[in-house]
């Protein structure tokens, strides 16, 4: 390392920032790439059904699809609001 490099290394380089951001993004996009194509529609329809009974926001429902060698798991997670039910 030269003397010049020593002074430059005081702040994180933009390249390492780029690498970090890309690694996170690419990992995320790759995991969603392997999901079945019906997933977004399934999520939308589930949300509609749930909204018949409870007032929930779009982001209160999450659908996760996980795949390993032996099985596929579909995980549905709904966060219920603090003051529930339109109809109670």
């Amino acid at each position: 390392m030269s003397l010049l490099d020593y002074f430059k290394s005081s702040k994180a380089s933009s390249a390492s920032l780029a690498k970090e951001r890309l690694q996170i993004l690419v990992a995320h996009e790759r995991s969603s790439r392997n999901q079945p194509s019906y997933l977004p529609q399934l999520q939308q329809e589930l949300l509609e059904v749930i909204r018949k009974y409870i007032t929930v926001e779009q982001d209160a429902i999450s659908v996760n699809f996980e795949q390993n060698d032996t099985q596929e798991t579909l995980e549905l997670n709904i966060v219920l609001p603090d003051h529930p039910s339109k109809f109670s």
């Binding site: 430059k8 290394s9 380089s13 933009s14 390249a15 390492s16 780029a18 690498k19 890309l22 690694q23 690419v26």
Partner: peptide
């Protein structure tokens, strides 16, 4: 440190 290196891109 202004540009991604070959190794960085290959790793990603």
């Amino acid at each position: 440190g202004e540009m991604l290196s070959v190794d960085d891109v290959q790793e990603i």
